[in-house]
């Protein structure tokens, strides 16, 4: 474990806690894309299948349980909670996210490190995570007004993968044979997708005005 990875995990944890806090306290999920939340639930479900077969550390297992629990409970809140579900703007959140799942699955079947069930699903979860934010970014473009909790959620979510890139560089430099091109490229693509959001988020923060994304 290195400081970059710890910072990445804590930033990731903060992003889901910000979202859960928002939904749980103000009982609203306005501006949040259910599609992105469903994709994240699939990402965690397919990535943490090894939670039963391999044990790395208490920390690793605990964080997996937290990410699984939080992502599924956010989906549950947005789909079934009587108050929250009414605040979900279904007609704006129209990204065909299933069109993201299939190509990622096909790509994972083609490009992976080992052709085993767990490894292919793990690779699929990497590719899917890279694009999972798209429905949320599209929704933010549409609704244009971003309440700062949703803005913080997306900002933290993008930041965590940025820290992971620093972690991969550190591990590449300090651990022999630590080479995982698939992870690195997927992580880089994921972070680049946030680039324009980061730009506008930083501009709004610098000019201290409400975050507005261009149409």
């Amino acid at each position: 474990m290195n400081i970059f990875r710890l910072a990445g995990d804590m930033t990731h944890l903060a992003s889901v806690l910000v979202l859960l806090l928002k939904i749980h306290t103000i009982k609203s999920c306005a501006g949040v894309s259910l599609k992105t939340q469903e994709l994240y639930a699939i990402v965690f479900a397919t990535r943490y299948l090894d939670i039963f077969t391999s044990f790395y550390s208490i920390y690793n297992t605990l964080m997996k349980l937290i990410f699984l629990g939080s992502s599924f409970s956010i989906v549950w809140y947005m789909r079934y909670h009587k108050t929250v579900r009414r605040t979900y703007d279904r007609e704006q959140d129209t990204f065909r996210h299933w069109f993201l799942v299939l190509p990622c699955l096909l790509l994972a079947l083609l490009i992976h490190e080992k052709f085993t069930f767990l490894e292919v699903l793990w690779t699929f979860s990497l590719y899917l995570e890279a694009v999972a934010i798209l429905p949320q970014l599209v929704l933010l473009q549409r609704t244009r007004n971003i309440d700062n909790l949703t803005g913080q959620y997306v900002f933290l979510l993008g930041g965590y993968r940025g820290f992971y890139i620093l972690n991969w560089i550190y591990r590449y430099l300090t651990e022999p044979h630590f080479v995982h091109w698939i992870t690195w490229i997927a992580g880089l693509v994921q972070t680049l997708l946030y680039a324009d959001f980061f730009y506008y988020y930083f501009q709004s923060w610098k000019n201290n005005k409400k975050l507005q994304l261009p149409a």
Binding site: R5, S54, M63, F67, N167, H180
Partner: peptide, 10 residues
């Protein structure tokens, strides 16, 4: 060893 480390990240 390396393989074991492959998926020690979240």
């Amino acid at each position: 060893e390396t393989d074991q480390n492959a998926h020690d990240e979240l």
